[in-house]
Simulated assay, not measured.
Amino acid sequence: MLTLGVEEEYLLVDPATGLPCAAFDAVRAGVDAPAVQAELLQAQIEVATPICRSLDEVRTSLTEARRAVAASARRRAKGVVASGTAPVSDGAPPPITRQPRYTAMRTDAARLVDEQLICGMHVHVAMPERETAVRVLNRLRPWLPLLVALGGNSPLWRGQDTGFASWRTVIFGRWPVTGIPPAFASAADYDARLDALHRAGVIRDRGQVYWLARISERYPTLEVRALDVQLHVEDAQALAGAVRALVATALLEEDGGRPADPPPELLSGALWHASRYGLGGQLVDPVRGEHRDAAAMVKDLLDHIGPALAASGDHELVPSALERLLHVGTGADRQRQALAAGRGRPAALIAYLSDQMDAQ
């Protein structure tokens, strides 16, 4: 069975106003866990699971991390929320984490760094070696827009509804190397093209390759970065399972001919529609080249990964969770519902988001 690990990023906020607050150092000091890390901005905090074999391990680890971070924040009169974007912001630039890499990024793109108030969920799946990772990466490309739709949890920006399910995807898309990765002929091709980006000055280092899926430079894994951080741990658990099953399916397909290779403009359009509509409407199927209901595309995904889910024992958990997302809505839908229930008051939404961190 393929092992996996999950990283989640959270926002630190003022519980009264909902505004991001630079409280990483204080909150981190109160968390007794080695896998808590700084992010680009001091208003963010990242946690990571250990290497996991089962989705139950993923859920347990994320639940413990969320509770620990929330408890530390509460003791310091701060809030912590799992939202793909900061729902409330006054435009004031949050302080960056003082690391040379982050300082250089702010020199290169000050406005983008100032507005990087976004939080994702990254799923790492173990790979035997880089050549295999490239072949799997090629096969994941058509599925990445649907993962964005399933994981949408960032509808608000500066207190306003953007109309998008994943505004984080739009914000992240402003960096030079983002979106759906191109297809690669081999690991050597992958490395050569990243080296070319570096030589040309497009990126300062390989960490600035922000594709929705990439080969990790730190671990022997394929890293899928298409998902917003999830409102609830149960959704994070299920989506991590779907990603692992996609990777496992791609491994089994390796000798079955060329993978589907939709035109880049269709993949780009599919990604935009996924970030815009989430599961709330029709999406672009980049393989068929047509509009289709989100529910039909989720069914295609479950049919595609069904054997892998059966092999890992996740054949009940993942399908039931994805069906639940179709019926009760993604995190973006639930944020909108909470905002409406609070009569449009951002403070009510922040209270709801904060409560979710403790209700896992």
Rank of each mutant, 00 (worst) to 15 (best):
W143Y: 13
A338C: 00
P142V: 12
A351W: 11
T178E: 08
V123D: 01
E290Y: 07
D333I: 14
L62P: 06
V224C: 03
A110P: 00
N153H: 14
R111K: 11
A321M: 09
G179L: 12
F24D: 02
D90C: 09
R334G: 07
S216P: 02
A200G: 08
T162P: 00
A270Y: 11
P181Q: 01
V170R: 05
P176G: 00
P262K: 08
G152K: 03
R28A: 15
T3H: 05
D333S: 14
A185C: 13
D90N: 14
L156G: 06
S354R: 11
D235I: 02
V31H: 04
R292V: 06
L197W: 05
L194F: 13
E7N: 10
A294R: 02
D300Y: 08
W272G: 04
L146K: 14
L4T: 11
A33I: 02
G151R: 07
V148I: 12
G241K: 04
T330G: 14
L140E: 03
A165Y: 13
F164P: 02
A245Y: 12
A294L: 06
C52S: 03
V125H: 02
H124P: 09
L11I: 15
V136E: 09
V27H: 08
S54C: 09
Q208E: 15
Q335I: 11
G344P: 04
T249A: 05
L353R: 04
A308E: 05
I215Y: 03
G306A: 14
